[in-house]
């Protein structure tokens, strides 16, 4: 985290560092700290779900938590897509849980162990872009598979006046095509900005404590620390909200593909 000569670089946390070089077919697919955190997310998610697999008639606390999350996603998908949405619950659930876990893993205080840096997988455009393409690709595949070329009627909403027929489909097409970018950028920007802000505030606290003048810690470090507690709590909220937004928008887009408005 700390760069050269005691300066704190808030962007350093997003640096990808290869841990084990790997090259397949001329592509550099090294195992990196990002890959490591993806596996940590997978492990945490698997552990969480495994705790809910007891399948008791009367659920315990852990099973209740897992069933709460699955019920929440199930409810979200079926309420936006309808009963046909059942098929898409695994996809939306996987997206939601992966993003949620990745966001939370990036917030974990692993940094208290020297040499270990938490890494937020979802703060990388390459990752959020793949997730957005998965979501958007599902919409395209489902839409064309169910409706064929009739899927294009999505761009002509009901009740469009004839004299606007040249403009509305263009706007609708544009808003449709922008979806994967907005999905990817929203998550990437929210996670990046939050982590940069936390790191900057942490830098204020540390640099203030190291300052020569005695008044600096009092005036800079303490207010920054108090603010940082609030920002951290807010960031935890953002972690959940961003995962929810991604999953909700995906289910709404799937609704477009399944039901065509």
């Amino acid at each position: 985290m700390a760069g050269e000569s005691g300066k704190i670089d808030p962007m350093h946390q997003f640096q990808i560092e290869p841990l084990a070089p790997l090259n397949i077919g001329g592509y550099d697919v090294s195992f990196t700290n990002s890959s490591l955190f993806m596996l940590i997310v997978l492990g945490a998610l698997w552990l969480f779900m495994w705790g809910g697999m007891k399948r008791d008639l009367v659920p315990g606390r852990w099973q209740m938590a897992v069933e709460g999350v699955t019920g929440f996603v199930n409810n979200m998908v079926t309420s936006s897509v309808g009963p046909e949405g059942k098929k898409y619950v695994p996809l939306v659930f996987s997206l939601f849980m992966f993003i949620l876990m990745a966001n939370f893993m990036g917030m974990m205080p692993f940094g208290i162990v020297p040499g270990v840096h938490p890494f937020t997988v979802t703060s990388h455009l390459t990752v959020t872009a793949v997730l957005a393409v998965l979501s958007f690709g599902t919409v395209l595949v489902v839409g064309f598979w169910r409706h064929g070329l009739h899927f294009f009627s999505l761009f002509v909403p009901h009740g469009t006046p004839w004299w606007l027929l040249w403009l509305i489909p263009l706007i609708e097409l544009f808003s449709f095509l922008i979806r994967p970018f907005s999905l990817a950028l929203r998550l990437f920007v929210a996670m990046t900005a939050g982590h940069v802000l936390m790191k900057v505030l942490a830098g204020f606290v540390i640099n203030g404590l190291n300052a020569q003048a005695a008044w600096v810690p009092l005036v800079v470090s303490i207010p920054s620390f108090i603010l940082m507690i609030g920002i951290t709590l807010l960031e935890l909220l953002v972690c959940a909200i961003q995962a929810y937004v991604f999953a909700l928008l995906t289910s709404l887009y799937i609704n477009d593909a399944v039901n065509l408005h």
Binding site: I16, P18, V29, F31, T32, S35, F98, V130, L131
Partner: peptide, 10 residues
């Protein structure tokens, strides 16, 4: 690397 590992994990 990001695509590769993300696709495996996801």
């Amino acid at each position: 690397s990001q695509f590769f590992w993300l696709l495996i994990v996801f």
